[in-house]
Design a protein around this nucleic acid. Structure first.
Length: 598
RNA sequence: GGGGCUGUAGCUCAGCCGGAUAGAGCGACGGUUUCCUAAACCGUAGGUCGUGGGUUCGAGUCCCGCCAGCCCCGCCA
């Protein structure tokens, strides 16, 4: 549909310029070329598209908007290329031009899409520069908890969409693997399990969280331990081999635990933690000094921020070197930005860098981004974007906690979703008297449970806080994963009962309004993907897929497929097939696999 | 005190850079099954878009003030 929209837009623009040549010249001279304001029709009865450009011209042309619209329409109707695309346009309301595409054109588009594995979504060329998506980013020696849920799920979905569009995507896991907490962890490890430092896999650290707690408790209670821990940090940063090995051990252990969750959620990540940027930190500060951005304040090296107009900002400065000479997280973040935009081999050569972190870090990133921009590290056309998301709240509207008031572990949260799903499925099977293999039940519960967690998160606009509710996300009706998965299953049922290998007629022939509604919904897929790529809002894709499922279910309910006679039967099978392809691809881009039966 | 985000139906949320009579889902109420999975479909009720101004032919959407909630605010990430 994008291709058609582009064609229509240029035809409209041509009509506009032919109808009002003087205004077109004047507008171009003023740097504000005429715009037909082509948009999708706001209601089905208005056709496929509407052009609102006539309304804007009313004032400069001192003519009634409907009169202007009529002049544009007259030009359009004189254009044979337009006539090949659309039925005669209609002027409605204050001066909207409503456009309806020729039905046979829509049917042909459906046919073309069935033969296209990309379903009409254009791929960016080979010359595409890398896009960095920085997401998930847990801390070493800590367990992943509900706070990592949104970054992980949203980041993965965005990466999938960008990859599908053909961008080389670097999925970076910026893990917290460097910092003062390693002093106490290593000191504790050395004292509790010295064997681990000399023999591979001698000790299973087991529950790293418990280990972290023990170390923290000693650190808080024991002054001598504190001193040893601080010395340990210095040794680690100085490259002491034993300290490095202990650090490596902790990282390896954490990595294995993270990986179990990533495998379960089918998420690929390239680990590149904070420590990776250590060698660059000196150079970062030197760069900032050379750019004249550094100011010493209270012994710390700072960059003071500016407002949009270049005036001094009231925001606190970005500190890149502490008064004790050490670097902090802002320095690391700056080093990461510099590295990611820098050309290979000294950097990633990225043109777009995306950070998926909670909204609470907005001001931190705003400051760091400004410094990077003023330091000249962002190449022309380079995009640096913070993709913020809101808190995960419980149904009481407060930050999600367990009943005991603890942080919710991600693993346990996923377990509960799958368990609830399985219980629900078993109850339903019993009610319907269905018998299924254990393996089937496990597969369905796992797929639906995890899909529900992902979809619930992705389907709301990420900028607002998100109210977590197992009952809502697992509901079988409404904008939920189970509802969408069920639509796929229905189509799979049709395929099993004889629709699988059927030859499709050409041209496809549609007669029922439910068929046309489905056709129009299907053809919007390409536009939605490009919108998600641009706006980085996965909920747009979710809404689209939900609407597609609704339109399909209406069609399925009201229009027979297998029992119809050809050519209707074949044409309807084509719609089923394309619906299934679109739902599978779309859900796949959200990181959600589909099922044949459920 | 400074900054950010949010405020739309009883509840959870959309609203695609200003366009036609503000949309879903849940919940409520009522209906549909000799037929491809009823995990579905159809219908009814329900909104002063926090509030007061402003800009505009046109504002849920843009600007300003105010109110409420959440979050952030210099050497932690």
């Amino acid at each position: 549909m994008l291709r058609i929209a582009h064609a229509l837009n240029s035809q409209l623009l041509g009509a506009l310029e032919r109808a009002f040549p003087a205004a077109a010249v004047a507008a171009r001279g003023a740097g504000q070329p005429l715009d037909p304001q082509l948009a999708p029709a706001s209601k089905p009865e208005f056709g496929d598209f509407q052009a609102n450009g006539a309304l804007v011209l009313a004032r400069p042309l001192r003519q009634a908007p409907r009169q202007i619209a009529a002049a544009i329409v007259a030009q359009l109707e004189a254009d044979p290329a337009f006539g090949a695309l659309c039925l005669p346009p209609e002027i409605a309301g204050p001066g909207f031009i409503n456009l309806t595409l020729r039905p046979e054109l829509l049917a042909a588009e459906v046919g073309r899409r069935l033969a296209d594995p990309r379903l009409g979504v254009p791929a960016v060329g080979d010359a595409a520069a890398p896009v960095v998506v920085d997401f998930s980013s847990p801390n070493i020696a800590k367990e992943m908890h509900v706070g990592h849920l949104r970054s992980t799920i949203i980041g993965d979905a965005l990466a999938r969409v960008l990859e599908f569009r053909g961008h080389p995507v670097l999925r970076l896991n910026h893990v917290g693997d460097w910092g003062t907490q390693f002093g106490m962890l290593i000191t504790h490890l050395k004292e509790v399990a010295p064997a681990a430092l000399s023999t591979a896999d001698a000790v299973d650290l087991g529950d790293l969280v418990a280990f972290y707690r023990q170390a923290k408790a000693r650190f808080d209670a024991d002054e001598a331990f504190q001193v040893r821990s601080r010395e340990e940090v210095v040794k680690l940063q100085g490259g002491d081999p034993v300290s490095r090995r202990a650090w490596q051990l902790l990282c390896d252990q954490s990595r294995r635990e993270f990986q179990r969750l990533y495998d379960r959620l089918d998420i690929r990540l390239l680990e590149r933690g904070e420590s990776f940027y250590n060698p660059c930190l000196e150079a970062v500060v030197a760069d900032l000094a050379a750019a004249g951005l550094l100011v010493s304040d209270g012994g710390a090296q700072c960059v003071f921020l500016e407002g949009d107009d270049g005036s001094a900002s009231k925001a606190p400065p970005v500190i890149v070197r502490k008064s004790d000479g050490g670097f902090n997280y802002a320095t690391t973040d700056l080093a990461a930005i510099r590295y990611r935009f820098a050309s290979p081999p000294e950097g990633d050569g990225a043109r777009r860098v995306i950070y998926v972190t909670d909204a609470g870090q907005a001001s931190h990133f705003a400051g760091v981004f400004q410094v990077a921009r003023r330091a000249g590290w962002i190449p022309p056309g380079g995009r640096l974007e913070h993709v913020p998301f809101g808190l995960v709240q419980g149904e009481d509207g407060k930050k999600l906690k367990t009943r005991a008031g603890d942080t919710v572990r991600l693993r346990e949260l996923l377990d509960e979703a799958v368990e609830r799903c399985e219980a629900d499925l078993c109850r339903r099977l019993a009610e319907e008297g269905r018998r299924e293999e254990e393996a089937f039940i496990t597969e369905v519960a796992t797929t639906v449970g995890l899909a529900a967690v992902k979809y619930a998160d992705l389907s709301t606009n990420r900028t607002t806080n998100y109210q977590f509710s197992f009952d809502r996300m697992l509901a079988l009706q409404g904008n939920t994963a189970p509802y969408l998965l069920y639509a796929v299953v229905r189509i799979a049922g049709i395929a099993r009962r004889g629709g699988a290998g059927a030859a499709l007629p050409s041209p496809l022939l549609f007669t029922e309004p439910q068929e046309w509604a489905l056709v129009r919904q299907l053809l919007q897929f390409d536009g939605v993907i490009l919108e998600v790529e641009e706006e980085l809002l996965p909920n747009r894709l979710c809404s689209y897929l939900f609407e597609l499922s609704q339109v399909f279910n209406r069609f399925y309910d009201q229009v027979p497929v297998l029992r119809a006679e050809d050519p209707a039967r074949g044409s309807r099978l084509a719609l089923c097939r394309l619906t299934a392809d679109t739902l599978k691809l779309g859900l796949g881009l959200l990181g959600i696999p589909t099922l044949e039966r459920m």
